[in-house]
């Protein structure tokens, strides 16, 4: 019987894990350990609900409610001096509990501190755009939409950014295969030559490591290459791949090791 492969997570998996292996944790510390973070957390807690907060690898992580995000970031920007949104994106937890985790990486240059604001949304739910607060969210939210299919409410131009506008599927979801799906394999053929050319051209080979070892025309005929379509008899003439022509080329000297000069010192 073939091994069952879950359809909602097609990414590479460890092929062997020790039965008794317990993964260690990156240590977390309490927010109270850091004065600045503790003060920031107090300020946020005064107005919004904070579900969880801790410090991990020198940065504070806080979990909030999805509908509070605009307010929290506004508070952080205007009152807590977190003036830059370095990065934002999503994490796919669809296979686990049908949710996405969204994170916003904030930077305060005056305090030299970084906070990661996070929340969960259900699959199909949209997030509130923070593009009005940070222009950088304009492109980040578009990228998130492009890669995960999460829309941002109130975004001025919610279109794909890295993939073509007419692309189907969301590449960074765990359910999307690494080499692309059926649509991806036909996309360029359909676009350039039309659907009717599918039979002639065939699907795009999207696995870059593919080697067809039964392809005797193009593979493993080094030095005996023949034009495509030629019938192979086994008595092909040798077709040597010379780096330089034997008779020499007009004005170009043939390279020999003896006549060449080696420069030892590249600085000259």
């Amino acid at each position: 019987m073939r091994a069952y492969k879950p359809k909602d997570d097609l990414q590479a998996k460890a092929y062997y894990t020790d039965r008794y292996y317990v993964a260690p944790q990156v240590p977390k510390s309490a927010v109270e350990d850091d004065e600045i973070f503790a003060a920031d957390l107090e300020a946020i807690k005064a107005k919004f609900e904070v579900k969880e907060a801790y410090i991990q690898v020198e940065q504070m992580v806080i979990y909030i409610n999805a509908h509070d995000i605009y307010g929290v970031l506004e508070l952080m920007r205007d009152e807590l001096e977190y003036t830059q949104l370095s990065e934002m994106s999503a994490i796919d937890w669809l296979a686990k509990d049908d949710t996405f985790e969204i994170f916003y990486q904030m930077l305060s240059m005056t305090k030299r501190k970084r906070i990661r604001v996070k929340y969960f949304i259900k699959n199909g739910q949209a997030v509130d755009s923070v593009e009005k607060l940070f222009r950088s969210a304009d492109w980040s939210e578009r990228e998130m939409f492009d890669m995960f299919g999460i829309e941002a409410n109130g975004h001025p131009f919610m279109k794909r950014i890295l993939m073509p506008y007419d692309w189907q599927g969301y590449p960074l979801r765990k359910s999307y295969p690494l080499q692309g799906d059926e649509f991806a394999a036909w996309y360029e053929v359909d676009k350039i030559y039309g659907k009717e050319a599918r039979d002639i051209i065939g699907p795009e080979i999207r696995d870059t490591a593919t080697v067809d070892r039964y392809d005797s025309e193009r593979f493993a005929r080094l030095g005996f290459e023949v034009p495509k379509g030629t019938k192979i008899t086994g008595n092909e003439e040798r077709n040597p791949q010379e780096y330089q022509e034997e008779g020499g080329v007009f004005l170009i000297k043939k390279y020999t090791k003896e006549s060449s000069k080696v420069i030892d010192d590249p600085q000259r």
């Binding site: 260690p24 990156v26 991990q56 690898v57 370095s86």
Partner: peptide, 20 residues
Amino acid sequence: QGMRPPVGEVYVATESPKGE
């Protein structure tokens, strides 16, 4: 098999020639 780092997350910024 590859190394197995602990469970957790990290964001590390470095100053590349272009920026963060």
